[in-house]
Design a protein around this nucleic acid. Structure first.
Lengths: 249, 249
DNA sequence: GATTTTTATGCCTATATTTGCATGATTTTA
DNA sequence: TAAAATCATGCAAATATAGGCATAAAAATC
């Protein structure tokens, strides 16, 4: 493999995940740590990324207002959120679900975008309230302590009275055959109402959750209009979803 | 996790909550408290935040409105909140308003206390959701960006359908003659509904706000059953309130 | 085409950084 | 004032880094 090629790969990995570990890259590319270290050093000198102890992080990552990792895989979630943002048009009326991926989506909404956002999530509502041109409507209800979202009859009733252009939702588990599933019954009921309230439903899901399932079913995979993952749309894992007429970004 | 990522996370948390506890962060990020302590020390040296005993606070929080006043005011608010806590009995159903004083109240609720709490405030709801024995119900509605509370017809309607033992409310301005006043019309409407929904209304107010007024009136001083300030109950400033049959703590 | 020079890479070693733990000092709380 | 929590410091283990060196490949030179 050419040096040039290798450095390009490193850059795209940083771009995609917002951070890399030298050891990971060395193993992936099957070269010694030293070589990767030298590559990253050069890229750092060229201001293409920022080298840090043990790895490298993308330049935008440090300066931007993007809040960073609480948990593993957050960088993938940011990548997903970036793709989701492209769907948003000025003046749209949308719903945003809870979950870390949706939260990253909210954080990336540009300040000049006019939106009306409904949400059941407390953190999402908090974050949205900092956006000057976003009208935020919080759906009330009993608060689920685990998910920090409104659940229960009141939330479902309120959702039944709205219709939004897009719903951006996350899920605990996705499977092409079993559809979207969750571990919590109450959350499933609310998500059903969310999907009902949307003209189009967009699922944000890291690849880790693909082909997994749990006890309670939210909906069939057919209820999803668009799916966004951090993977390349041509990835073989996604083939089965493409067959369901789901747009993949 | 890379050190830089961790520090970014800490900064974000500080920015978001204005203050953090080292122990919380350590647990969230799953590293030792020593590591967090060292990180915060570095960030403090870089002027990215201010380290305090047991945690850190955001710079904006200290600098913006004359640092010392703010810190002292916060201590006063905590003192008020501690007194308010003593009113809470196991199993009570209460309402908690937005504002920093009410937020301190929530933070001080002991883990073993069983409560059902209604609130219009997003930060209060978030904080309450961490209390294991508190059932939290968020009142939905359009979100006021300044106060991070639900306002509008939906919120008022929802409030009209509940009756709680105590409402703990804050206010922008209090005056023995003019009553409670605010600078925002919508917020006044919601507060009226809150007072209607309560058997007893408890006002939490730092002495700084006493004998001040603004454009829109929430209610007469007679609508308040109990008032809590950081002052000694015998303080002369409070005399005029005692004459209104208001319990002072 | 053969030889020299340059570049890239991997390995080794000494050094530096990061992190968790132990200890005693300090601060806060009751 | 006593107990609890928090802090600073030093130490040790694990990991990361920089620089030297050898080898091999690529490029330049003769």
């Amino acid at each position: 493999m050419l040096k040039e090629e290798r450095q390009q790969t490193i850059l795209s990995e940083v771009e995609l995940h917002n951070r890399i570990l030298l050891t990971d890259i060395a193993e992936t590319l099957d070269v010694s740590i030293d070589t990767i270290r030298r590559d990253v050093k050069e890229l750092d000198a060229e201001k293409k990324l920022k080298k840090v102890h043990g790895g490298a992080i993308s330049l935008g990552f440090t300066n931007s207002n993007s809040r960073n990792n609480h948990i593993y895989a957050l960088n993938d979630k940011i990548a997903i959120a970036k793709k989701a943002i492209t769907l948003l048009k000025d003046g749209a009326v949308i719903f945003i679900d809870g979950g870390t991926t949706c939260l990253e989506l909210v954080r990336l909404i540009p300040d000049n975008l006019n939106l009306t956002c409904f949400t059941i999530s407390l953190p999402v509502a908090m974050e949205l309230s900092h956006k000057p041109n976003v009208t935020v409507i919080s759906i009330g209800g009993q608060i689920s302590k685990e998910a920090q979202i409104s659940i229960g009859a009141n939330a479902i009733h309120n959702l039944s009275e709205i219709k939004v252009d897009y719903s951006f939702i996350g899920t605990g588990y996705v499977d092409a055959v079993y559809g979207l599933t969750e571990f919590d019954w109450d959350i499933v009921q609310v998500k059903k109402a969310v999907i009902q309230a949307a003209k189009k439903t967009v699922l944000l899901s890291i690849s880790e959750k693909l082909n997994s399932q749990h006890r309670f079913k939210t909906c069939d995979i057919n209820s999803i209009n668009t799916m966004i993952t951090e993977l390349d749309p041509t990835d073989r894992v996604l083939e089965v979803f493409r067959n369901h007429d789901i747009k993949i970004l």
